[in-house]
């Protein structure tokens, strides 16, 4: 089996907040000890609510924010990089291999550049083509792959709808033939009828070009439909990681279960089934001790306030859960409140 494309071990990202006269400035631990492995060809999902650190984690992989502690490595068939330490030449090469698709297709495109120039810019900046003709050829090729009309290349972004703009953003990210793409809330700003089109496009591009994706989203239904593996983040830590179907049919962590049950069901007769989580996500500046979820967890016990739970395999190494009590609770049947997916599976 080939090695993981991206490996993170206990990765931490800190941001300074305010200043103090003496001693070190206080920091927000936006990402606090996250370990993940993204295999080549995977569509890896990262879900969490606002402030969970999912965007920061993505940026840390792309070296857009400094890594405070822990390690990260990149390994494809050609090169091996330490994400923590890279020479400028390595960074430049890495930028060609790993790209980002942004959330807001209205803010991500310069209004003063034509679509052709927007898509061609990475090629020019990285010096990947020898002539204008070669650039144009490559732009046309990638635009066609992203189902953009070739006449559109001469126009400016304002002439396009949200869905078309997102296709332009995707073409720009793909033009330098990266191996790995991070899609950070890339369909969140789109209408439902358009969203499905972009999701299908990302999936078909993944198949055709052999890409690896990190798909960051707050929308669990979208993640369930696109990703192979999903990690759930809460306040800078990973609470659960599992193959998609398993995560959605048999979640083990109390937070994942509550999160899934909070999604409004399309069935009007299925009202009021949400396990109500009290309170809100605490501030990451002063996170709760022990398990970060314990102030909102319906099953919190004294051990949860004292000890930080580490991810441990639930059934096998593919499914990990960071909770002190999930086995004990499952034995006692306290976590039997399963999601509606489980219920429907049983019915079928």
């Amino acid at each position: 089996m080939s090695p993981p494309l991206v490996t993170l071990n206990n990765l931490e990202v800190h941001f300074p907040v305010g200043k103090r006269l003496l001693g070190p400035a206080p920091v927000v631990r936006a990402v606090d000890g996250v370990s993940i492995r993204i295999m080549p060809g995977q569509f890896y999902g990262l879900v969490g609510e606002s402030g969970s650190g999912k965007t920061t984690l993505g940026r840390a992989i792309l070296r857009a924010v400094p890594i405070a502690a822990g390690s990260g490595t990149w390994e494809d068939s050609e090169v091996h990089y330490d994400l923590h330490r890279m020479t400028p030449a390595e960074t430049k090469d890495f930028r060609r291999r790993a790209q980002l698709i942004f959330q807001d297709p209205y803010a991500a495109l310069s209004p003063r550049m034509t679509v052709r120039d927007i898509i061609a810019e990475p090629l020019e900046v990285m010096g990947l083509t020898g002539s204008r003709q070669e650039t144009d050829e490559r732009v046309r090729e990638i635009a066609a792959k992203c189902r953009l009309n070739l006449e559109h290349l001469r126009r400016f972004p304002h002439a396009f709808s949200g869905g078309q703009r997102q296709r332009i953003s995707i073409a720009r990210a793909l033009v330098c033939s990266p191996r790995f793409l991070i899609a950070d809330e890339s369909v969140a700003a789109l209408d439902v009828s358009i969203q499905a089109d972009i999701l299908n496009l990302l999936k078909s591009l993944q198949n055709d070009l052999g890409l690896t994706f990190l798909f960051i989203s707050h929308d669990l239904s979208v993640v369930a439909h696109t990703c192979d593996v999903v990690s759930v983040m809460y306040l800078g830590t990973l609470v659960e990681t599992a193959p998609t179907r398993r995560l959605f049919t048999a979640p083990r962590h109390p937070y994942t279960q509550a999160l899934l049950s909070a999604i409004p069901s399309l069935d009007p007769d299925d009202r009021g089934r949400a396990q109500r989580l009290s309170g809100e996500i605490p501030s990451p500046i002063n996170p709760p001790s022990g398990c970060r979820f314990h102030p909102r967890c319906p099953h919190a016990a004294p051990v949860c306030t004292e000890k930080i739970p580490l991810p441990e395999p639930a059934d096998d190494e593919h499914h990990t859960v960071a909770c002190h009590r999930f086995r004990e609770l499952e034995r006692r049947g306290a976590l039997l409140e399963r999601t509606r997916v489980r219920k429907l599976d049983a019915k079928a």
């Binding site: 439902v192 669990l220 239904s221 439909h225 399309l266």
Partner: peptide
């Protein structure tokens, strides 16, 4: 039909 649904993965 365009809506991702959890009960029809």
């Amino acid at each position: 039909d365009a809506l991702p649904k959890l009960d029809a993965l």
